[in-house]
Structure formats: C-alpha cells, structure tokens
Amino acid sequence: MSSIQKNNLEKLEKLDLNQPFFNFRGCTEAVYPGTQYAFRKICALTGIKLVESNDQTCCSGHFLLFNLTTSMGATAIEQRNLNIAKRYSNWMITLCNGCFSSFMLGYDFLQRDPELREKVKAAMQTIGMELVSSKEVYILQAGEFMYRLRHFIKNVIKRDLNRSRIAVQYGCHYLNAHPDNIISDPENPHFVEEMIQILGGVPVEYQEKTLCCGSGVTQRKVHPNASLMIGYEKMKSIRANNPDLIVTICTYCEMEMDNNQLEFAIEYSDDFHIPVLHLAELIGLLIGLDPEKELHMSSHKTSVQSFIDKLKPLPKE
C-alpha cells in the first residue's frame, strides 16, 4: 500500500460520523433493489444520517466510456450532481464503482484541462451553480464506508457468517482507475476480507482477484465472447478455492458475475452455482432483514438460498 493510500485509510478512520452523508443513487439499483434498501438500513442502525435528493440524476459514466458524450459534457453532469450533494454534505457515497469512477474522472478532467475547466464553469453558471472541488465533496465508495462502520455493524448483527468461505470482488473501477483515491493497494486489496473475518466468515483468496469481472462497462453487448471468456477465467479461479459466496462492493460487478453463471452453463456447459451478493446485501442478511420482502433475493439469477441456509443466528443476549 502506498503512502497515499495509507493516508486515505487514516482519513477514513478519523472520519466524523456525526455528519450527514449524501447517498448517490445509481442505475444498477433497478436490478438489485435490496442493495440500496440494505445500505439505508445499515446506516440507520449504526446511527448514520444519510441524505438523498430527487435533484440528482444518473452519473452519465457509461456515455463517456463509450464515446457518446465528451469529457466536458460528462464533467458538467458530474459537477451538477456534486452541487446537489454539497447542499447537504461534504461526502458522497456510491454503491457502484461506475458512479465512483465517473465522479473521480470528472475531477481529474477539471484538474488536467484548464480550457475544459473554464467551459464547464461557464456552463454551470447558466444553471446557477459553481465548480465543486474534490476537497469540497469527497467521493467515498460504499464498501470503504461500511468498512469504517465495521465495529458498529458487528454490534448490530443478529446472525454471523458461521465460518462461511467468502471470495471478494473489488472491481476495476474501484481499484485501477483512481488508485490515489482508495484505501487499499490496488494490486492486493484486503479491507473487505478483514470485515468478513470480523463478521465470522473465512475470506478466500484466489489468483484472479484483481481480474475484471468481464463487464468492460458494456462489452457484454459489443464483444460478448471476449467478455464471457474473461468472466469465465475469473470464476474458475474463484471456484478452485471452494467458496460459499462471492461478495462485491460494486453493483455492476455483482450483476455481471451473477448473470454470467447462466451464460457459462449455456455456452460452456459449466455450472457454478456460487451466489453473488453486494456487501450491503450481505450485511443486510446479517442484521436480520427479510431475504425476500426486504432484500429481494429472488432478483438474483444465481440462487442465494444455499448461502442463507448456512447463516447462524447469534444467541440472544
């Protein structure tokens, strides 16, 4: 871990939790509604004040990465959302690496390109807004935030992981795109594994931990074979270590790794049946949320039931 990442971790550990945090909503919550629901419940139970606004829009990250907008257009959309967040908080939390990376990229464009900066500034002024800097609104991946809450979470769980073996997927747009803005070594991340241990599970290491899930933003549509082959390489590496569950901090990776297992069965006649959950959903199960009514576990293509059955209720005090 570099000194920058160590500093980020220290900053996170010192983060004042008695302030409001802006919850940025993303498109993938339509696929797994339990993720957002669980995250709100986790925050409520641990005394965190989350703020949301109907004035936010999607992040527009997809469009930039597949050249349907310019750097300037994407930066302006990010800046508008940051202006909304700034009304409530200096911290914006994202459950998806796509949103996380898009905001970071917007900040980076402003810093690198003075001409773009002036044009975006002028555009923002027409809607009565100003440029927001990364020092005014800090972008925090929800996985990191839940790590910050780990000891509080430990105190409110009703079930523990019962020594379940869990493989972790961090995701490229968290690890690689902006390594100076994360709390771990992008080539050997470990904080989610630490959380799993605290919550009674056994983290499973695997060779391809930092390999892409196969999504490539929307490469499933553009190059389906290459996309599936990358996802397959990753899943084989995970299976070789016999996990009960894959947990991810990115809703986009979650979608890819969950859906891909159906494709592997069709394309390669290879059945995996390894459930995939977002870290928020996993903690949601542990704090006792209803798997179906609250967490919508049936929205997962790969059944999660085998894993839910393994969880052990903690003795009541």
Binding site: N54, T57, T70, A76
Partner: peptide
C-alpha cells in the same frame, strides 16, 4: 428521465431541465 432507465429513482423536473440545458451547452 434523468436516469438511464425510466423510474429507477425519482428525478425532479428541475433536474431534467438542467441536464438538458447542460446537454445543449456542452455539446453533449
């Protein structure tokens, strides 16, 4: 709709108006 799919989360008419304005101004 202010989101890549209709109805993922509520988005105010003001927000939609503003992103359309930015869309025009930035060449998006």
């Amino acid at each position: 709709y202010g989101a890549v799919l209709k109805g993922i989360f509520p988005v105010s008419p003001k927000a939609i108006e503003e992103i359309n304005k930015l869309g025009e101004l930035t060449g998006m």
